[in-house]
């Protein structure tokens, strides 16, 4: 995946969530966004997901500019898998139906084929015995894996994951991180925002440190976790890695 962002701005009232963020990254499988809360990671992911329109600036994904108008955005959302912090499964649908809804309603698969795809993905995440259960009957880790399966089942061009483990306890976090690691092993492109620094280091091809709505630096994990990192990055990492 190739990503090119120039001078992205997005303000909510007086708060500048993105304040002229520019970022270039070539041929990256997994890009991990780190940085303080409120620094712009989520807003950036929402812009990339086509859920938020920037006030100014441009986004280019794999050489194609993202056009922030209703129809192209709809097309873009349909090719993009998004996993939210709060799972956001549909409570009135079973685990399997949550996965098949986009397949049948958006991608035009016949119901039998959608169910086969859905079951296949549930199996991959060891969830096939929960296919008929509603989200309320699943644990947090199971819900988040269903959400990942839903995002993957449409065969997206890439996956966006916004702090997918921050609402989970350590055991469930491990379940979900394993699932994400498997994505990387399969060569699936994704952009992940996380506070799990150890995991970021292990799973990232490139790490971007984002603070105050701007990119501070981007580079391979060795660079950001090493001695040559920018002072702001080192200060942040020193603070979050202390305990």
């Amino acid at each position: 995946m190739k990503l090119s962002l120039t001078k992205l701005c997005r303000a909510f009232g007086s708060h500048r969530a993105l304040d002229g963020l520019s970022l270039e990254c070539e041929a990256t499988g997994s890009l991990v966004l780190i940085g303080p809360s409120g620094g712009g990671k989520s807003t950036l992911l929402r812009v990339l997901a086509g859920l938020e329109r920037p006030d100014s600036g441009t986004v280019e994904i794999n050489g194609k500019p993202l056009v922030f108008e209703e129809l192209p955005l709809l097309q873009h959302r349909r090719r993009t898998g998004v996993v939210f912090q709060g799972f956001n499964l549909f409570p009135h649908l079973s685990a399997l139906e949550n996965i098949t809804l986009p397949l049948t309603a958006v991608h035009g698969h016949p119901p039998e084929k959608a169910a086969a795809i859905g079951l296949d993905f549930l199996r991959r995440f060891q969830l096939e015995s929960h296919a008929a259960q509603k989200p309320a009957a699943l644990s947090g880790g199971q819900r988040q894996r269903v959400a990942i399966a839903r995002a993957l089942a449409i065969d997206p061009q890439f996956l966006l994951l916004d702090e997918p483990t921050s609402a989970l306890d350590p055991v469930m976090t491990a379940e979900v991180l394993e699932a994400i690691e498997a994505l990387r092993a399969q060569g699936r492109d994704f952009i992940l925002a996380t506070h799990e620094m150890g995991f970021a280091r292990r799973v990232a091809d490139q790490i971007a440190f984002i603070a105050e709505g701007r990119l501070v630096e981007i580079g391979p994990p060795e660079q950001l976790f090493g001695e040559s990192a920018a002072p702001q990055t080192r200060e942040f990492l020193a603070r979050v890695l202390r305990y």
Binding site: A49, L74, R77, V82, F84, N88, F90, H92, V106
Partner: peptide, 25 residues
Amino acid sequence: RSQLESALAIGLTRAQTYRHVILPQ
């Protein structure tokens, strides 16, 4: 709101969002 956001993210149109997400709930 998170339900509407989710519907938007998976690429449902407005009419589909009413039919599959809003109406049943």
